[in-house]
């Protein structure tokens, strides 16, 4: 057995050498690529430059300017005003709440259509629907919710007249934090389904069977294997859902107008300029959003590093 192991190790060494050789070959191929190969990327880089680099640059510069264009830090001191702090807190709370709830429900739905073993037809339907619903946001989504769960919405009226349940009397309000959260969850759930489905598909049935074979219960399987294996994907999905809600503007504005002061609405108000008009403060607030997302992504990277030490 020792001999065979030695042979296997020597084979491994051989395999490494082979990999090295093929690596050298691919480098050689890369070196041979000429300028024509880069042509296809030009539209992409132009797009990025025009709609990301320039706006981000002007936002960065504008955040440090006053209305006359002189350098100032006053915009950042204004960020500490109670209404702006509260706006950030509401936005973070809304994004975290909808990411967690949408993530949880989306995970369960994705689990049902993958590992749960529902018929293939159900899986196809849910996947297709998720693709559409995850992009259904903004004014149409707000209108859909108003016409179903608004004060005179279809569902509200049916519940009241047929079942005697008055949603608004019982404390529900579509134009409140939880109403907005419910609307966000509509697109957060399908987005979670789309993101986590491939990860769930990658869970091998044999892991479950092997753990069962060694005496593990369902809980023990998920605690020791299922969740740890999925954790990097779950974290990535949650951060994406958080970002998705954090930057949403049209849905919230169409649904609540200015009733709930989330940061994107406040920025819109500063830049569009009706009553509040201070574009530079708007830029600073946007920079604040970038900072929060950066911190979130850093925290995510750290967690990802810990949770995925075993990943190739």
């Amino acid at each position: 057995m020792t001999d065979s192991l030695k042979k296997e190790r020597s084979n491994q060494k051989g395999a490494e050498q082979t990999t090295g050789a093929s690596g050298a070959l691919s480098l050689h191929s890369a070196a041979k690529s000429n300028w024509k190969d880069w042509l296809g990327l030009i539209p992409f880089f132009l797009f990025i430059f025009a709609f990301m680099v320039i706006p981000a640059g002007s936002l960065l510069v504008g955040a440090f300017q006053n209305r006359d264009g002189s350098f100032t830090l006053i915009n950042f001191s204004h960020l500490l005003k109670p209404n702006i702090i509260s706006s950030y807190l509401i936005t973070i709370r809304l994004s975290a709440t909808t990411a967690l709830l949408g993530g949880l429900i989306g995970f369960l739905l994705a689990y049902a259509i993958t590992i749960g073993g529902l018929p293939e037809g159900v899986r196809s339907f849910v996947s297709t629907f998720s693709g559409v619903a995850s992009n259904f946001a903004g004014v149409p989504l707000a209108f859909a919710f108003i016409s179903t769960l608004g004060r005179v919405g279809l569902v509200t009226v049916i519940l009241k007249t047929v079942f005697g349940i008055d949603l608004y009397e019982s404390g529900f309000n579509l134009y409140s934090f939880w109403g907005l959260a419910l609307t966000y969850i509509y697109f957060q759930i399908p987005l979670m389904v789309l993101i986590i489905q491939p990860a769930l598909d990658g869970m091998k049935k044999e892991w479950r069977e092997a753990s069962e074979n060694m005496g593990a219960s369902t809980f023990q399987y998920w605690f020791h294997i299922g969740i740890p294996v999925l954790l990097p994907s779950l974290l990535a999905a949650l951060i994406l859902l958080f970002g998705n809600a954090f930057g949403a503007y049209a849905t919230a504005f169409s649904l609540t107008g200015g009733l709930i002061n989330i940061v994107p609405i406040l920025i819109g108000a500063q830049i569009r300029g009706d009553v509040l008009h201070d574009p530079n403060l708007g830029y600073a607030m946007a920079l604040g959003m970038v900072l929060i997302m950066a911190i979130t992504i850093l925290a995510y990277s750290w967690l990802q590093k810990i949770s995925s030490r075993w990943v190739k």
Binding site: K204, E206, W207, E209, A210, I225, V229, W310
Partner: peptide
């Protein structure tokens, strides 16, 4: 297919 737990 071995079925080793990849996270361990």
């Amino acid at each position: 297919n071995y079925a080793l737990f990849p996270n361990m």
